[in-house]
Design a protein around this nucleic acid. Structure first.
Length: 831
DNA sequence: CGCGAGGATATTTTT
DNA sequence: TATCCTCGCG
């Protein structure tokens, strides 16, 4: 049978058992996506299941898209009815249909982190929360955790007991939910929680979906949180045909509520479950798998398994250690360059550079630019997080759903319309007293007390928005966007701004434009393309979703983003204690933090197909300080015989450094610091410690502050030592633990340009800037030429003048008169 | 009401 | 180091 041709016996078993619960423990690279897609094919072709009855859930759009592609490739059009969707978009689809049962309108907005923060700020102001003591972020993360656990505001307050801060957070939670509802908005976590709420409160809705989804498959099950668990449980509880696929060793999203117990306890929830283990790896060499196995073996809380392959031993794992992070970046760039040159078959897209935090990409990027190596960075500042994009989206949101106060207020005075804080406060106060939305209040501007001259400005704004709505009635979405950009003056304000990033901004807006046009072309939803549809798609994109395999570029990303991907050549950088494993994670109580970091290491190692390179830097700059870190503990967990350690000498030195730290910081009579000394290297630091003039301070917990972990035990308390000159990173949980435990890293503040030099790539910065600022090509038309504009139609060019960033073009259009615009942005063609 | 300067503050990971 | 926020002046 065709479906089973390419499957090993375990995979076949997993595909064949379609009835009842199935747990597939799929190690990295063991072909789990293959199993899911083949299972879908089998259900459709051999079991005659209606595609409509199948639901496959993933975490990212990219994973969903790939699954869709593969299923289509096997089955063709017959699979079109199968729902393959992310958790979040599944919930949105369901809620768009039924959320009126919960008192929201079905065109609800979806708030992202930024919106949440803005809203929370208002809530805190209203509740007189001292945001110095209780930060918005902290409150939001508490609320997020609560929602992931399906804890309602009511229950949250009940459980808060007498704890002052918990009670305050409870108040915020309640108020925040009210504000969301008033804005007809849901945040990310609401999408899941409201869907569960819907199913719990309205059984007939649940039953209809249970009838529909007879066969449910969940990918990356180890990453589900309680809300997702509950959602799946409810949907599957009638048919019990639930197949979950996951790897407990790859659970790396604890911070967003993922509960590893969901997969570890699956057999308790479904005692009749068939458990299939997929341990044969089709991706990596045995050496890479051995390394991965021997690292992950150090975790306590896991199901034991052992990956194997028949692909042979392969290359040793390379380890390189450098004095500074800049040298580390140089090595990566030069190494990639060298391999591309040497190996004719190699191309840029075969390489991935991974790191623990987004901030680490900077240096590597700079260095790649210097070597003219094409690269893409996944994540970091999301495209949709950029100011100009958020502005433009706020226009679209306002036109789409004026109940979204945040969007309305964001653009009210962007570009400047002379509407100031006083006016905004008056409108807001009126809206509250009359119990209406901000926009409704503006529509009744004449009734608002105290608004004098500003009334006409407000009127002009609402007229404009109403005009956009009317325009949107009988125009395409992309035309509407063009109209908005033009009429609102937003485009003009971008073009006229002397902000040095204006060029990028314009480019980004253009990109949004083409994304909208693209959406319009390719949307295949039942309802057809709509503004809400586009905004929803935009709200639910993940960083990784935009990765195109077709781009021949080196990929840079965090270890988290790399999950699910594979590359022939992988570099994992920043293998230093404090960076990876991250100091933050290690500060947590117990082993959970460290074990999660170790799983992250496991994920990183198993991304590599042919070879893996690990790198570390003795010192790197962070937040304007140079930080000396010991080598990552994970390195020592990889057997030496698997490693090609070109830094053997460095490693010994590093081991000495580790001992050195231990000695110094655990010693009661610790050696002192030199007065006012500056430390530029570990050696110099050691020297300074031998001076016996001051004592190493006891690690002093900061003032008691809620939620605050032990921070920098600054040396400012030492007489004579410059404030901020050096510091010791306090050890795990210092805030709560007694003084005297061991600090883990040394911080040094560079004072002179010379001291900073090794850590920055000034040359590359300058050249990168120059490259970006290169003058755009002159347009191929000149005065007197006839041109065509996408929206304005045909016209005659009056003049072309070089502007600060781009050529300014004046055109007399046949239909709508004279316009002046930037050549690159206008995108006109000569006719 | 708009803008600039200067100070405080932050970096873990993301649907 | 880089961004954000607040404050004060024109």
């Amino acid at each position: 049978m065709r479906i089973f041709d390419k499957l090993n016996p375990e995979q076949q078993e997993a595909v064949r058992r379609t009835e009842g619960p199935v747990l597939i423990l799929a190690g990295a690279g063991s072909g789990k996506t293959r199993v899911i897609t083949h299972r879908i094919a089998y259900l459709l072709e051999e079991r005659g299941v209606n595609p409509w009855n199948i639901l496959a859930i993933t975490f990212t759009n990219k994973a969903a898209g790939e699954m869709r592609e593969r299923v289509d490739a096997m089955i063709g059009h017959g699979a079109a009815g199968v729902w393959i969707s992310t958790f979040h978009s599944l919930c949105v689809r369901i809620l768009r249909r039924h959320i009126d049962l919960l008192g929201y309108e079905t065109n609800f907005a979806i708030y992202d982190t930024d919106d949440q923060k803005t809203l929370m700020k208002e809530v805190c102001a209203r509740l007189n929360i001292d945001t110095k003591k209780l930060k918005e972020r902290q409150i939001l993360s508490a609320i997020s955790s609560a929602k992931n656990e399906l804890i309602t505001p009511l229950r949250f307050r009940e459980e808060a007991g007498t704890d002052y801060y918990q009670r305050r957070i409870g108040e915020c939670y309640e108020e925040y939910q009210k504000a969301l509802k008033k804005n007809n908005a849901l945040d990310f976590d609401d999408l899941l929680m409201k869907a569960v709420e819907l199913f719990t409160l309205h059984e007939q809705v649940l039953v209809s979906y249970q009838n529909r989804f007879r066969y449910i498959m969940v990918d990356e099950y180890q990453d589900t949180n309680h809300a997702q668990y509950e959602l799946v449980r409810l949907l599957a509880s009638a048919s019990r045909n639930l197949c979950v696929v996951g790897d407990d060793d790859q659970s790396i999203y604890r911070f967003r509520g993922a509960d590893i117990s969901n997969i570890l306890d699956f057999e308790k929830d479904y005692p009749e479950a068939l458990v299939v283990r997929l341990e044969q790896n089709y991706r990596s060499s045995q050496t890479i798998l051995d390394a991965a196995n021997s690292v992950i073996r150090n975790n306590e809380r896991r199901k034991d398994k052992r990956l194997w392959t028949d692909r042979g031993q392969g290359e040793k794992i390379r380890f390189r250690r450098f004095a500074t992070a800049y040298e580390e970046a140089s090595f990566v760039a030069e190494d990639i360059e060298g391999r591309i040159r040497k190996d004719k078959g190699a191309s840029y897209k075969d390489f991935a550079v991974l790191y623990r935090t987004n901030a680490q990409s900077r240096l590597i990027e700079d260095r790649l630019v210097l070597s003219s190596i094409p690269y893409n960075v996944v994540g970091g500042t999301n495209f949709y997080d950029r100011k100009e994009i958020r502005d433009v989206l706020a226009y679209l949101k306002t036109v789409d759903n004026a109940r979204d106060d945040l969007a309305v207020r964001r653009i009210l005075n962007v570009p400047r319309r002379g509407i100031g804080q006083t006016t905004i406060s008056r409108v807001a106060a009126f809206a509250v007293s009359e119990d209406m939305t901000f926009y409704e209040a503006m529509l009744r501007v004449n009734s608002i007390p105290g608004i004098g001259r500003a009334a006409s400005k407000i009127r002009a704004f609402t007229d404009m928005i109403e005009g956009f709505r009317a325009y949107g009635e009988d125009h395409r979405l992309s035309d509407l966007l063009g109209h908005i950009l033009e009429e609102s003056g937003y485009k003009a304000s971008l073009e006229d701004s002397d902000d040095e990033n204006a060029e990028d901004r314009i480019r980004n807006v253009e990109e949004l434009f083409s994304k909208l046009a693209d959406y319009e072309e390719h949307d295949d939803s039942e309802e057809g393309p709509s503004l809400s549809g586009f905004l929803e798609e935009v709200a639910l994109v993940a960083d990784i979703d935009s990765v195109e395999d077709s781009d021949n570029r080196v990929l840079l990303m965090t270890l988290h983003s790399a999950k699910g991907l594979e590359f022939p050549h992988v570099y994992i950088t920043g293998l230093e204690d404090g960076v990876f494993p991250s100091a933050m994670a290690m500060d947590e109580d117990g082993m959970e933090g460290e074990e999660e970091e170790r799983r992250l290491a496991y994920v990183g190692i198993t991304r590599a197909r042919e070879d893996l390179t690990l790198t570390a830097a003795q010192s790197r700059m962070a937040r304007g300080e140079v930080r000396f870190n010991p080598e990552s503990r994970f390195l020592s967990e990889i057997p030496a015989d698997l490693m090609d350690d070109m830094s053997a000498r460095g490693r010994r030195a590093s081991a000495r450094a580790r001992d050195f730290y231990d000695d110094i910081f655990s010693d009661e009579d610790a050696p002192p610091f030199e007065e006012g000394g500056r430390i530029t290297s570990l050696g110099a630091y050691a020297e300074s410690l031998r001076g016996k003039k001051a004592r190493v301070p006891e690690t002093s917990p900061r003032k008691e502050e809620p939620g605050k972990k032990g921070g920098l035990a600054s040396l400012s308390g030492i007489p004579g030592l410059q404030k901020g000159a050096a510091g010791l990173k306090s050890p795990a949980g210092t805030g709560a633990k007694p003084a005297g435990s061991k600090p883990r890293a040394v911080y040094v503040k560079p004072h002179t340009a010379e001291e900073k030099l090794p850590y920055i790539t000034r040359a590359s910065r300058a050249s990168a800037k120059k490259q970006a600022a290169a003058a755009p090509a002159a347009p191929d038309y000149g005065p007197g030429d006839r041109v065509r504009h996408q929206r304005f139609g045909e016209g005659t060019v009056l003049s072309v003048t070089p502007g600060p960033r781009d050529y300014k073009v004046a055109v007399e259009f046949d239909s709508c008169g004279r316009k002046v615009m930037y050549a690159a942005f206008a995108g006109m063609e000569k006719i």
